[in-house]
Every structure is written in structure tokens, then in C-alpha cells.
Design a protein around this nucleic acid. Structure first.
Length: 135
DNA sequence: GCCAACGTTGGC
DNA sequence: GCCAACGTTGGC
């Protein structure tokens, strides 16, 4: 099962919005690399939900893929997956904390800060999950 | 608000 | 196909 990380600016789409609406089409991605990652997502894959563009950027929750990639009828070069709320992390995992963890230095979040959809390895996932379950 | 990183566009 | 100009993202 695949593991991923999705970025969102809270002013555009926040975790509170996600909780309220439960399911969402993850659209608006206009970057080929990010789109290619979305195309590789399978049903049941889990994604960290990351808040960017704020004072304390952080992973705040987890969503799951309930519908795989579909092209946008208007602009078929791009498209969306559909996600559903899975869980809220007990403690947000801040970018600051991620940067302090040596085993996470290869996360694209660090090296390729502009990428909005990225893969996460199983071990990175486990590390982040642990960080999100305790203070 | 600034700036670095980097993807995209368009002229040649 | 190269590369300069430009636009966007996102951390600080």
C-alpha cells in the first residue's frame, strides 16, 4: 500500500474544511511531477495532510484514497484523486521537528520544498506517525 | 514582505 | 533545443 504526503494552504483548503466535508476531490494540482504521483495512487493508500504557507507548517492529519486519478474534462493534462478523512494526528508534526530528525532528511518536503504531492517511504511514514502520536 | 528554488514559457 | 525572463510556491 502506498504512502504519500499532500500539501495544502489552510487559506485554500484546511484540515478543518476536510473534517467538515469528509471527502474531497484533490484538484488544482498544476505540476507534472505532483500529478504523476497522483496517478500512481491506489485505493486505500494513505496520505499525510500537510499545512503549508503558515507560521508553523506541519502535518496535521491523514486521509485515504477512495477514488483513483481522473483527468479534468476541461484540462485533461491534469486531474484529481478523491480523498476521505482518516484521522487527526494527536500532535501536529511540525516542519521544524521533521528537519531535526536525521532519518527524514530524504523526504522531498526537505529537498524539494515546492513539490505538493510526494511519496513517503514506509519507514518515513512510521517515523512521522510515531512523532504525531506523542508530544 | 522578502527571497530562494524551481517550473514554465517563448523567442531565437 | 537552448536559455533568459517570468511566475509561483513556500519557508522564514
Amino acid at each position: 500500500m502506498g504512502k504519500w504526503l499532500l500539501k495544502s494552504e489552510p487559506t485554500t483548503w484546511s484540515w478543518a474544511d476536510q473534517i467538515r466535508e469528509v471527502t474531497t476531490k484533490w484538484d488544482g494540482v498544476r505540476n507534472y511531477q505532483a500529478r504523476n504521483h497522483m496517478k500512481k495512487m491506489n485505493l486505500g493508500d494513505l496520505c499525510f495532510f500537510y499545512h503549508s504557507g503558515i507560521k508553523e507548517p506541519a502535518i496535521v492529519g491523514i486521509v485515504t484514497i477512495i477514488k483513483t486519478y481522473e483527468p479534468d474534462p476541461v484540462d485533461p493534462s491534469f486531474g484529481h484523486v478523491t480523498v476521505e478523512v482518516c484521522e487527526t494526528l494527536a500532535f501536529p508534526v511540525t516542519l521544524k521537528a521533521i528537519k531535526m530528525e536525521p532519518s527524514l532528511e530524504n523526504l522531498p518536503l526537505i529537498k524539494q520544498s515546492r513539490l505538493s504531492v510526494m511519496p513517503v517511504t514506509e519507514s518515513e511514514w512510521a517515523t512521522l506517525l510515531t512523532m504525531g502520536s506523542k508530544e
